[in-house]
Amino acid sequence: MTAGPGTAVDALLRAQLADPACAWSLGSYGAGAVFARDSDEPARLLADERIGLLTARGGLAFTVPPDLRPVAYETGFTDGWSQSVALCLPEAACAMGRRTVLTELGPDAAAIRPQDRVAALFDLGLGLRAVDACLRVADPERIGRLRALAGRPLLASGDTEILRAFASRLDRIFLTRFARIEVFAAETDPAAAGIGPQSHILPSWLRLGRTHAATAPIPQGWVPCGALHPAHPARDQSGRPIPFDAGRHDAFGRVLDVWGDPALVALRRAILAGQDPDTVRAGGRFARLAIRAARAQRRAMVG
């Protein structure tokens, strides 16, 4: 499972960007941001050289570095399966600021919207390896309040709950070496606004110090900085069941053929063809999860 040419990665990202049912995420285990949009939500391409989209509620912008490696996989669970494409960088190339205290970074010069490029960016100091979780502030009073907290280890001191309430009225910006997601301050209740950009910080998960969930088959020496989540064959964007969509299923199968682990892809094909899995290939956690996912797909295909 080796990375294809940069043009192949670029084509994958652009194809998924065109599908409003595909969601995008950046982050680490316990902290992240998601860019998603409703199927009929207005969205426009970026005005600069970056690839991405902008809506009234948030934005996604990325470049395609030569060492970016997609890793496609499926994970089976009790009542279905998930599908993802992790966007990975080599361990030596993924590091971000890794700040452990609230830190003012200066103006957000790379902001997607030109009017946001004079606003101040503050790193929350979560100490993440491959992502910086930040707040963006334009209001002088709020800048002053954050500056008063600067230099404090918010996670260790237990201030995250206070800051989370404060952050709900601010833009949240998640940055990696190749991408950013911007979650704009909500003017309405996010729960009433449909599918859209969102962010989360889970201190109990962050304390584990993981870059990704143990169920993700990330090759040794690589670190997932984000992921794309293509349209699911059996669930809508909210996770609700839908009639099985063979077109979506075939489409992700083609993504797996190019960007998945060949051994896991072979197991999937065998299960979908009604065959028993190869006992040699079927060993290990990732193989078991792939088999469980394929069996769930067979059940969904026959209704």
Rank of each mutant, 00 (worst) to 15 (best):
65 P>R: 10
187 E>N: 06
208 L>M: 07
71 V>Y: 07
237 Q>G: 08
90 P>D: 14
264 L>K: 15
161 E>F: 03
37 R>P: 01
203 P>C: 12
255 V>Q: 11
168 S>Y: 11
204 S>W: 13
186 A>W: 02
224 P>S: 02
14 R>C: 09
120 A>Y: 05
98 R>W: 08
74 E>A: 15
50 R>K: 14
9 V>Q: 09
266 A>K: 13
52 G>Q: 12
128 L>H: 03
64 V>M: 00
290 A>I: 08
117 R>T: 12
63 T>E: 11
104 E>K: 10
202 L>K: 11
154 L>Y: 05
213 A>T: 09
142 R>Q: 14
279 T>Q: 09
55 T>W: 00
203 P>R: 07
82 S>F: 08
17 L>P: 06
189 D>S: 03
52 G>I: 12
80 G>T: 08
56 A>N: 06
253 G>A: 07
38 D>H: 01
210 R>K: 15
201 I>R: 00
118 V>M: 07
3 A>D: 06
16 Q>A: 14
203 P>E: 10
180 R>I: 01
241 P>S: 10
255 V>F: 07
303 G>E: 04
199 S>G: 12
259 W>P: 05
161 E>S: 08
240 R>N: 08
210 R>L: 15
303 G>W: 12
49 E>F: 05
232 H>F: 09
292 R>H: 14
65 P>C: 06
136 R>T: 03
121 L>R: 02
286 F>D: 15
230 P>C: 06
107 P>D: 02
212 H>Q: 09
267 L>F: 08
245 D>G: 03
